[in-house]
């Protein structure tokens, strides 16, 4: 299917304009394509040492905090005395509890921005000087690298397609990815993966692999996976794919809270027509077309009645689709 993008609009006002609200289109869930200056949060433990202060301007790569791996609390006494470099956690009367625990891992900023808060209770909060594309889930990270489109919107990347030539990149891998591909990507020096869907089995397998890696003594290079849509396989939405294509070759970052792909501020975003809708779930998931008006309550499979809208796919007749399965990009 051809993508919906006619020509880049000058910016994106996030409303979809008056046209979007006409003819019942406002009933369709609006999915922001680009979010301006998102606020990011990096959780902190009391064992972490924060290296930045609220109000501080930061750039990508700057050290935000040192994270203590496997922190332990030990009470001082005959077996354990306070030494230089120990970090007291609490003390009451003669009793003191110290923090200890092997290696420290650096937490580097994936993006430029301003630190808004830096304490354990709120985490490290950064207002990013960037734009972002939202996902539904991120694993690992934060991580940054050069964006590379590895497959088409409905493609799937196989482990054999990965080599060290992709080291340092964040790959867009299409509709789904297997845990084996993710593990190999990390081994090849890839910094991250953007994918439409990740199955529960692949998520669990990859997380188990990550835990094993982290249990080793060596420090791991940053790696993150951003899942754009969910669990069940579907193609990346064409407006999202157009946006990613426009960012190819640029430095981007993946963060986990909220799950997002961050990129330099863009003046113009490739915007789909206001009446462009995507079937996000259900039997027609992944198909895209033009909104043709509300269809009212309709009877669908299993005698279920749902509010519906008409969508014209390609040049076909208007097809009723449950409103809850539709989304539009603003």
């Amino acid at each position: 299917m051809t993508g919906p993008i006619g020509h880049p609009a000058s910016g994106n006002n996030g409303t979809g304009g008056g046209v979007a609200m006409a003819n019942g289109l406002g009933l369709v869930t609006a999915r922001p394509l680009v979010q301006r200056s998102p606020t990011l949060r990096f959780p902190l433990s009391m064992a972490d040492t924060v290296r930045v202060a609220p109000g501080q301007t930061i750039s990508a790569g700057i050290l935000l905090a040192d994270r203590l791996r496997d922190p332990l609390v030990e009470e001082t006494g005959r077996r354990r005395r306070e030494e230089a470099g120990d970090s007291p956690l609490l003390s009451a009367g003669q009793r003191t509890w110290l923090l200890s625990g092997g290696q420290r891992e650096p937490l580097e900023s994936p993006i430029s921005g301003i630190v808004r808060s830096a304490d354990t209770a709120t985490g490290l909060v950064v207002e990013a000087a960037a734009d972002s594309l939202a996902g539904v889930l991120a694993i690992g990270g934060p991580s940054r690298g050069r964006l590379e489109i590895a497959t088409g919107a409905d493609g799937e990347l196989r482990p054999a397609a990965l080599d060290v030539g992709r080291s340092g990149s964040i790959l867009v891998v299409g509709s789904r990815v297997e845990a084996e591909t993710l593990t190999r990507a990390r081994a090849m020096g890839v910094r991250g993966v953007v994918v439409a869907a990740l199955s529960g089995k692949d998520l669990r397998d990859f997380e188990a692999s990550e835990r094993r890696q982290r249990a080793s003594v060596h420090q791991l290079a940053p790696f993150a996976v951003l899942v754009l849509d969910g669990v069940l396989r579907r193609r990346i939405a064409s407006p999202v794919m157009e946006l990613l294509a426009s960012l190819e070759g640029n430095e981007v970052a993946i963060v986990g809270d909220p799950p997002q792909l961050l990129f330099r501020r863009v003046e113009s975003v490739p915007t789909p027509p206001a009446d462009w809708v995507r079937v996000a779930s259900g039997p027609m998931a992944g198909r895209e077309g033009r909104w043709a008006g509300p269809a009212g309550p309709r009877r669908f499979g299993a005698a279920v009645h749902l509010e519906a809208g008409f969508v014209r796919f390609d040049d076909g007749p208007p097809t009723p689709v449950p409103l809850a399965d539709l989304e539009r990009f603003v």
Partner: peptide, 21 residues
Amino acid sequence: RDRLRELRFRPWADAQGDGAL
């Protein structure tokens, strides 16, 4: 499990047919 996790992301998704069951 995958369908339940998907429904967590989109609780109204695919409310017809098998989804209703």
